[in-house]
């Protein structure tokens, strides 16, 4: 899957989970940039992303992610396998 398509589909996941159609993610986006993204909603986002791309994240992979860019790279790597 192309990187831009991953970004577009991931953006839709963000909009659905945080119920906000105006969200526009970038590689630098972090939880600080999205009002409803906190420790409680984080795992809902992870679960929705796993369903969207039919992949599974390991706990260690999630801990290592610092921003949406890391998130997308991890999705890309998993889809390439």
């Amino acid at each position: 899957m192309h990187y831009d398509e991953i970004k577009s589909r991931l953006n839709r996941v963000f909009c659905t989970v945080f119920k906000d159609d105006t969200i526009l993610i970038s590689e630098e986006t972090t939880a600080k940039d999205i009002e409803k993204w906190d420790s409680l909603t984080h795992l809902i986002l992870i679960s929705a992303t796993e369903t969207e791309f039919a992949i599974k994240f390991k706990l260690k992979e999630l801990i290592a992610m610092k921003n949406v860019g890391d998130f997308m790279k991890s999705i890309e790597t998993k889809l390439a396998v």
């Binding site: 420790s39 984080h42 795992l43 992870i46 679960s47 706990l59 999630l62």
Partner: peptide, 9 residues
């Protein structure tokens, strides 16, 4: 919390 929420996600 985080490992538990991960397990129950």
């Amino acid at each position: 919390f985080y490992p538990l929420a991960y397990t129950f996600r």
